[in-house]
């Protein structure tokens, strides 16, 4: 599978990549983007299978990106990995077509739990 990791923090992109491996999701191809605009371009060009996306980012935030992805009918699974944890935020994500919301900080176990249904 092709996984696109979207986060404006280089550190977090590194941590997501590392935790994916620790959670048993090794052997997949990963790519990175640092904001929604860059991510949208990579989704159109590289057609990833899964997008793992931060919420608060410059240029275009995560929920705006999700809206554009669903509007363009890209058939990609989309999950948020974010410090946002309010019920309101989670509901908004799901209403807009997110497959899951994983709150930071996450562990290999919590990532595995969130991603297993998506990878199935």
């Amino acid at each position: 599978m092709k996984i696109l990791i979207v986060d404006d923090s280089k550190a977090m992109r590194m941590i997501v990549t590392r935790t994916l491996k620790q959670a048993g999701f090794s052997g997949h191809t990963t790519a990175e983007a640092s904001n929604g605009v860059e991510a949208l371009q990579k989704i159109e060009e590289d057609t990833p299978d899964i997008v793992l996306c931060d919420w608060n980012m410059p240029e275009m935030n995560g929920i705006e990106l999700l809206g554009k992805v669903r509007e363009a009918q890209h058939n990609v699974r989309f999950g948020f990995i974010t410090s946002e944890s309010s019920a309101e935020t989670k509901a908004l994500a799901i209403e807009n077509g997110a497959d899951f919301v994983l709150t930071k900080p996450f562990t290999a176990d919590s990532m595995q739990l969130a991603l297993e249904p998506v990878f199935a």
Partner: peptide
């Protein structure tokens, strides 16, 4: 940034 989740109210409202 991630430590926002230490505040109890972050689960009921956006911080």
């Amino acid at each position: 940034n991630i430590a926002v989740n230490l505040f109890p109210e972050c689960h009921s409202q956006r911080l």
